[in-house]
Design a protein around this nucleic acid. Structure first.
Length: 525
DNA sequence: ATAGGGTTAG
């Protein structure tokens, strides 16, 4: 497109066809705003659009959700008598439907008797987009003939999160011939409803797959917490010879991040570079996150420093990661840098920086940031922020101060908050507050083994042996057991999950795995 | 030329 712009700028008087080509180019490179702007330039050069221009420009308006701009074009269409053109009319209907002005689209649809399948499909898709399946179904029943688009639009609508997947499947089974997009829509419908087994069945059954089919499945597994299967599927996709694109690689990276699968993540990163896949900020942030979650602070730093564009989430990943790795000072510095740049702030960034403060024992700094959060940025602290504050004060031994915050906070403390207070009580030997915390944890049904171990340790240190025994007995009465640590690595292209204290792997392979995953194990504990 | 399929990260 850059090259096209260069050539275009050298043409003295571009024809309408050339203008149209430029506008189409912007749309195809997902730049509808520039497409619209290009049309503006065309007009300012006293070039008027032809019957091909309007559908393009209207599509741009629809894509950028520019209802006002779309109305403007509508006016011109009327003025120049293009409303009799079916293509232009359909484009107007589609524009209104995309922008949410379905009534306007419907008026146009009803106002003319010359309609084709595109008119019908456009208006049906408008109702589908805004969840009005009833009206969509009505039109679907009235339509004189249907093509593969018509069916696909309906299947897609029923496959939405709140849609009726059963009816979607009925349509899918009824339709005369299915193309790839229909299969993908149906599978995506199951994924949206969390029915991964049904999705997988269809996926295995479908005659042909493309990168979108694979992405839908891989994304589904990531979304429902089965990143291990997501990575297996991603590897299968490569094996099948389907080339991943920016979206599918990004999904795979987030799977790696979720698993802490650093090696596989690195491999994908290299693959991206080798195959000249262009990742946007989001994809790059996913990589950054993957390195952070994989514990490679150095690679994360390099990634962050080389990013041409960073948004609040990129900063957040960095600040949170530094904090978790004990580099609170650096996290706070980064946060200060953000403030200096006048970056927009949200509640999550404060959560990260407060966590960093508490891990590094930066009490004064943390309190200051907490105060500025409301006074300067107008962000109301949530339960999690109070949790950070309590953690911060607790770790620093200011247990009474922590207790005061708990008492004055406007919401009910949760188990994480009591848990962190309990941990602080252990560090700073406070039996009374520890007992209160355990009491609350029991109330919240969050009394796992760690809670009792801590409590009995506190008693032990105070020499309160009877209480120690009481706790131990309570534990066995309640059948509380120690939970296993988990970690995941990739061996010979297979994703393996590890559960410490469990012998699920064959013995010689297991030894190999143990050696190769030692560092992962340490990190996951 | 206008209508349908994966949009994501903390």
């Amino acid at each position: 497109m850059n090259y096209a712009e260069l050539v275009f700028s050298q043409i003295e008087q571009p024809s309408a066809f050339i203008w149209n080509t430029m506008i189409r180019g912007y749309i195809e490179s997902s730049n509808p705003c520039r497409a619209f702007h290009c049309y503006g330039r065309m007009q300012s050069k006293n070039m008027s659009g032809d019957n091909h221009t309007y559908p393009y420009v209207l599509k741009a308006c629809g894509l950028m959700l520019g209802l006002d701009e779309g109305r403007e074009i509508h006016g011109e269409v009327l003025k120049r008598g293009f409303l009799s053109d079916l293509f232009v009319r359909n484009a107007l209907i589609s524009m209104y439907c995309r922008c949410g002005a379905i009534v306007c689209g419907r008026t146009l649809f009803d106002g003319f008797h010359y309609r084709d399948l595109v008119s019908w499909n456009s208006i049906i898709s408008g109702y589908v987009r805004f969840g009005e399946m009833g009206e969509a179904q009505k039109l679907f029943d009235e339509i004189p003939e249907r093509d593969v688009f018509t069916w696909a639009i309906m299947i897609d609508g029923y496959g939405k999160k709140l849609g009726d997947i059963i009816r979607g499947r009925e349509l899918f089974d009824r339709m005369p011939e299915r193309d790839l997009a229909c299969w993908n829509s149906m599978i995506n419908g199951y994924v949206n409803h969390g029915e991964m087994v049904a999705a997988r069945d269809l996926f295995e059954e479908m005659p042909k797959r493309n990168v979108i089919s694979w992405s839908i499945m891989i994304d589904g597994y990531v979304r429902f917490g089965n990143s291990k299967e997501a990575l297996n599927l991603f590897n299968q996709m490569l094996h099948h010879g389907t080339k991943p694109d920016n979206i599918s690689t990004m999904i795979a990276i987030s799977a790696c991040a979720q698993l802490g699968a650093l090696d596989q993540g690195r491999w994908i990163h290299t693959y991206i570079q080798k195959n000249k896949i262009i990742l946007d900020v989001i994809g790059q942030t996913a990589l950054l996150d993957m390195y952070m979650k994989g514990g490679s602070l150095e690679e994360a730093r390099t990634m962050f420093n080389r990013m041409p564009e960073r948004n609040i989430i990129s900063w957040n990943v960095m600040i949170a990661g530094l904090g978790i790795n004990g580099l609170g000072e650096e996290a706070v510095e980064l946060f200060a840098h953000m403030e200096m740049l006048g970056m927009p702030m949200d509640d999550l960034i404060f959560l990260s920086v407060l966590t960093a403060c508490s891990h590094a024992g930066l009490v004064t700094k943390g309190l200051d940031i907490f105060r500025r959060m409301t006074s300067v940025y107008g962000i109301k602290p949530k339960l999690e922020h109070y949790g950070c504050l309590v953690d911060l004060l607790g770790r620093a031994g200011q247990l009474d101060e922590a207790k005061n915050w708990i008492q004055s906070m406007p919401m009910k403390p949760n188990s994480a908050l009591w848990g962190s207070l309990l941990a602080a009580c252990k560090t700073h030997q406070n039996v009374l507050l520890a007992e209160v915390s355990v009491g609350r944890l029991v109330e919240l049904k969050a009394d796992d083994c760690g809670v009792y171990v801590i409590l009995s340790n506190i008693y032990a240190e105070e020499g309160m042996w009877e209480d120690v025994l009481k706790v131990r007995k309570l534990m066995s009465d309640r059948g509380i057991k120690k939970e296993a640590g988990r970690s995941v690595i990739v061996v010979d292209g297979e994703v393996e999950e590890f559960v410490s204290g469990e012998r699920s792997h064959s013995s010689n392979k297991e030894i190999d795995l143990v050696i190769r995953s030692l560092s992962m194990m340490i990190m996951s504990v």
